[in-house]
């Protein structure tokens, strides 16, 4: 009993370490050592993963992270691509649900569209880990755990960085993601909560770009024609921010302070060379790698949800990235740590 308890405590301790901060690199825990301590499965486990769509760099990075951590933990990861399409992902999850898995992890592209096949897997006793976006409200679907960032925090923290850059005075535009996306809604709430504390800042526009870089380029053509003075711009993801930057550069308006979200490698480079002022990390590797750890713990150690086990909702925040920490962030992403 004592031995088991001690092992469990050690494992939980390491889980917490993995889920708190980008500390692993800093405190010198090598992923291989962590895997051994965590209780790597003796027999290969079969896991099915699906995220919104591998066309998105964030999702592709998550796939690489899941496969990397899967190898360390002896988990054979099978991927079902969501193809950034709700109906295609539903078909893929239907196919996933018709097969047998040790655990599965899913990021829904269309909220509410995957509930039926996911419920079928849960009823079959398969631990289902929800990634980044709610498959369905947590009180309606008994997922093993929900690993997601606090989008409101991300929106607020990068907006605060922009406010500091413009010294709390001027004009700002927010280009939102798709309005129905819970992530975009949270980021917008975070943005608004910060902006209202700065009375000398005027919000010029909040038109959604729907994550679509073509649409964003069109919107920003109009913004730059319509508004002679724009101090800062906050985008709900980096891809949109970089697309808008190209329009700004073409019109000679590179004085606008740009904030993004996700902190993917191209955005880190943009922060380093000054095209973007800041971004905030949405930790794809931590979320996807964390799902491997949560799944292995559920299958190998029988970890349950709730007290003493994994929380129903694990918040996986990342930091704001500026020139000061961009290099370190890039290194940690290469190691699939954040």
């Amino acid at each position: 009993m004592d031995d088991t308890a001690a092992r469990d405590t050690g494992r939980r301790g390491l889980l917490q370490a993995a889920a708190t901060v980008p500390l692993l690199g800093g405190i010198g825990i090598a992923p291989a050592a962590l895997a051994a301590e965590m209780g790597r499965s003796a027999k290969p486990l079969r896991a099915a993963f699906s995220n919104a769509g591998l066309q998105a760099t964030w999702c592709a990075q998550g796939k690489s992270a899941a496969e990397y951590w899967g190898k360390l933990f002896n988990v054979d990861v099978t991927w079902f691509d969501g193809e950034l399409n709700a109906t295609r992902q539903r078909g893929a999850i239907d196919n996933m649900a018709s097969q047998r898995w040790d655990f599965v992890a899913i990021q829904a592209f269309g909220i509410g569209t995957l509930a039926a096949p996911v419920r079928k897997m849960i009823d079959a006793g398969i631990p289902v880990i929800d990634l980044d976006t709610l498959i369905a409200p947590l009180d309606q679907l008994n997922v093993h755990s929900f690993l997601a960032p606090d989008n409101e925090f991300m929106g607020a923290s990068v907006t605060e960085a922009l406010m500091q850059a413009i010294r709390g005075e001027g004009t700002i535009i927010m280009t939102q993601g798709a309005l129905g996306h819970t992530g975009a809604q949270g980021r917008a709430r975070g943005f608004e909560s910060v902006v209202k504390r700065y009375p000398k800042v005027e919000v010029l526009d909040t038109t959604p770009g729907d994550w679509d870089v073509t649409k964003v380029a069109r919107i920003w053509d109009t913004h730059l024609t319509k508004y002679p003075k724009i101090s800062a711009a906050y985008f709900h993801n980096d891809d949109m921010a970089l697309a808008a930057y190209n329009v700004m550069r073409a019109k000679g308006r590179t004085d606008i302070k740009i904030g993004g979200c996700d902190a993917m490698p191209p955005a880190l480079q943009a922060v380093l060379d000054g095209r973007m002022h800041a971004t905030v990390r949405n930790p794809s590797c931590r979320i996807h790698g964390g799902a491997i750890m949560a799944g292995v713990a559920a299958v190998v150690a029988g970890e349950k949800t709730g007290e003493g086990g994994i929380p129903k909702h694990v918040i996986t925040d990342g930091p704001v990235v500026t020139k000061d920490n961009a290099h370190g962030m890039a290194w940690m992403q290469k190691q699939f740590l954040i």
Binding site: N85, A86, G110, G112, T113, G180
Partner: peptide
């Protein structure tokens, strides 16, 4: 029927059809 099957009604849901 698609809205019932997928469990939700949202913009651009059926584009690939």
């Amino acid at each position: 029927l698609g809205v019932a099957y997928f469990g939700s009604a949202q913009q651009n849901q059926f584009d690939n059809y």
